[in-house]
Design a protein around this nucleic acid. Structure first.
Lengths: 173, 173
DNA sequence: AAAAACTTTCAGAATATTTTGAAAATTCAA
DNA sequence: TTGAATTTTCAAAATATTCTGAAAGTTTTT
């Protein structure tokens, strides 16, 4: 193997490792992130055995995290003609990847918060100063959550959005 | 204790419990979130012993998480005249709280990603098609990260921002 | 300067999360 | 059908994170 190819292999390994480490900091599990990184960098789709061999992890682990990555909409299953095995390929359009991650996090992180605050609001009658104080906080959190949710949605939804357009200009430079 | 006060106590407990549970979903530890919730709901500042008693957790745990909450800028230390003990009070302005959390997450989640991608870019010369392909991905992630960072910053920085103003209108209704 | 009041630290314990791997389930070809 | 290939499941093991509590450190009072 030539020196220059070796450099690339090293950089790819570093990318996979880094992606895995960073992911834990944002609540995604290390292996899921590493599989994602591996597939992102792979020019062709890979099957479970290849991923197992490459990352040195068990079949069960690979299976579980591939399923999670599909739930997140970050990878797709590819059925190759004449092949029994399932192959997986990552979404390579990084803007789509980012949108997908943001979407999923909005759903997981903001959704339950809004629901919980609504439930609390309904459970208390504002018939005392103390209760009004409590409801003030619950209401404020509710409003901030709905705002965050709306902001996320408008950032994600329309590519006509000024913010997005502004971004696309920079991105396509 | 009257029935109506009991209801409030229950709602507060539910709030604290919910806040703690949700927090784990967004990478913050349960106890830290519970202490934060407790202080958010407390009309007066609390000391370590009071928090220990209320949440039934150890002194070390309380101390450590109070420090983390101060790092996050979510609570302040209050020295009461004539008191030896340190008292803690939460930032009650929920919009400030949200900004603080967003700021901290930007710093922790996006910052390291940008750095890692820059480092990878510098380590590889684009002297082959394979390397160019790799650098394309790294570059794209770099651009998306910088975009996310900038978007966060402009959302947070200026209250003249249209998005913020729009929010404030809703919030103050 | 000593003692009391309080805060911080950190090694070990407890808890929670992730991973393994073999067995069960499923799919497909013959 | 049958059975080989492949995927999925899940209990137990490994690993990672959080928590405890007593000892050490610090600050204030006497």
């Amino acid at each position: 193997m030539s020196v220059s190819v070796m450099e690339l292999k090293e950089a790819k390994d570093k990318f996979i490792h880094t992606w895995g480490t960073l992911a834990t900091q944002w609540g995604i599990n290390r292996t899921m992130a590493q599989i994602h990184a591996l597939l992102l960098l792979s020019p062709k789709s890979m099957n479970a055995d290849e991923i197992m061999a490459d990352l040195q992890i068990s079949r069960g682990n690979v299976n579980m995290n591939l399923r999670d990555l599909m739930d997140w909409g970050l990878i797709y299953k590819q059925l190759l003609p004449g092949e029994r095995k399932e192959y997986f390929i990552a979404e390579k359009d990084i803007w789509k990847v980012a949108k997908q991650i943001a979407k999923e996090r909005r759903r997981r992180e903001i959704g339950p918060l809004i629901e919980a605050m609504e439930e609390l609001k309904e459970s208390i009658q504002p018939d005392s100063a103390e209760k009004e104080e409590f409801l003030k906080i619950v209401n404020d959190i509710s409003k901030v959550s709905v705002f965050a949710d709306n902001t996320m949605t408008s950032l994600l939804k329309s590519d006509e959005n000024w913010l997005i357009n502004n971004f696309i200009k920079i991105f396509n430079k």
